[in-house]
Design a protein around this nucleic acid. Structure first.
Lengths: 122, 122, 122, 122
DNA sequence: GTGGTCTAGACCACT
DNA sequence: GTGGTCTAGACCACA
């Protein structure tokens, strides 16, 4: 597992990883997530940090916590929405940054294409 | 001027704006930047915050501070390098995120293209 | 504890002292350093000054700051590298200065040897 | 000519260079130094900076300024003293630093010797 | 508890 | 005029 960056809060990095796992389909809708303690061990962090992660995920509508039973993924539909939303944000972010740096639309598309399908050091 | 986000340190937001301005060509290589105090007024922040910005920019090789004279942009070559570096990072970031969400290369390129040239939020 | 010189910034003097303590082996690799506030009391300076010290040490690769936990020394290997690097710089500096003053290699070596093992100020 | 470092005041860097030139014998005792303006042009700095240099050199007893005639080097004896003094300080400094880093006298001498007479990357 | 950021205001050295 | 440093004190996010 990749180590955590120091520039971003750990809880947010874990959130991102979980969201991506969900959206990628590694975790199926309705599935029960590991307990806070298990997750804390797995990531090698303080359980409080995982608690924070689960709180935020619930706030985002990705999971729902059932008292005494654990933390469960929501239904497939919300996850599909999440997937669309996350990708939209990521792309918007890139386009905004590149535009602020003075790249034209054509340049942006070409750069992305080069990075995707070009050589090792495109 | 846009207000500052609260999620990211102000000095970093100012850094980003200046970097983009430089890379976009709004600031000419070798040019003297506004003094710390002027910049502080312009951005409505404390001069110490701008000081931090200038220090970090110098550490990045974007500017060069000359004692008692001010803060100057580096040469065109380093700025060109910066431009390439910043765009590379932004694109890498997007591709990493999208891949982690399970998007294929083709899907990524199509999504970017759609955002750029299609839809209501191009 | 020795008082601070006025010719050099305090944060740099503290950096130097810490680096030497590390390199001397007084501080063990991986060990947690005193908190910013503790260190500030110990050195009789403002916590912000220590903050600056820790930031610079991290930039040098001497320490690693973990969010909410504190500032930790890096591994033994990097510290060994630091030791070599610092001594190399100090010696290079001397040799450059002495050469610029017109001392031959033999004279330099003899002078150093005299200072080390001869005279009243060895 | 080497460019100036940004970490140390320019006037001090120029002082050091001049002192070394004097001590090396490039400038002969009693000789008249270039005028402030000439020196300023030569070093590409503000004349005020050279004025400061000459003030400090006079304070050190390296030069003496004769009204309307210019700035002259002192006699050979004082220069010989200066030479001894500067080399002593430089060596003391090295030994102090190395000792603070935990190097023994033998290690110091060996390191210096290696740097002087060893390979390209000693 | 930890470090990080920001402000206000001061003083200083340098050019 | 310039940037650099330091203090005092505040607030915040993180673990």
């Amino acid at each position: 597992m990749e180590p955590f960056s120091q520039n971003e809060p750990i809880y947010r990095q874990i959130m991102d990883r979980l969201c991506r796992a969900v959206v990628r389909g590694n975790l199926v809708p309705g599935e029960r997530l590991p307990s806070v303690r298990e997750m804390a061990v797995e990531f090698g962090v303080n359980p409080n940090t995982i608690s924070r992660v689960y709180q935020e995920l619930e706030r985002l509508g990705v999971t729902e916590t059932r008292r005494g039973q654990g933390c469960f993924l929501t239904d497939a539909e919300r996850i599909a929405t999440l997937r669309r939303e996350l990708s939209r944000r990521a792309i918007d972010r890139l386009l905004t940054e590149m535009a602020a740096m003075g790249f034209s639309r054509e340049e942006i598309l070409r750069s992305v294409s080069d990075h995707l399908f070009g050589g090792d050091n495109p």
